[in-house]
């Protein structure tokens, strides 16, 4: 049983979950362009599929926001 922390809430996920799979489960709107940090380190986009989450990992998603005008 894996536990990852996201959006300030703790959630439990299946063992062996990768960041890519988490992006799918959490229904990230623009999955190709989300910036992800795990335990205060950015995960490179090419490494998302190979990064397996562990218990108590803290995951943050940051989304592009292009507006301002």
């Amino acid at each position: 049983m894996n536990e990852a922390d996201r959006g300030g809430v703790s959630k439990e996920y299946d063992d062996g979950l990768t960041v890519s799979e988490l992006i799918g489960i959490e229904k990230v709107r623009t999955p190709e362009y989300v910036s992800v940090s795990v335990n205060d380190e950015f995960v490179k986009s090419e490494a998302l599929g190979g990064t397996i989450l562990r218990d108590n990992d803290v995951v943050e998603f940051l989304y592009f926001m292009g507006g301002g005008e």
């Binding site: 623009t30 190709e32 362009y33 910036s35 950015f42 986009s45 940051l62 592009f64 292009g66 507006g67 301002g68 005008e69």
Partner: peptide, 20 residues
Amino acid sequence: CVFVDPPPPDAVPTCSQAGV
């Protein structure tokens, strides 16, 4: 550091397309 590079055109909507 956060976003590395801009997304390709139209991949991510801007305010004019998405509203605000």
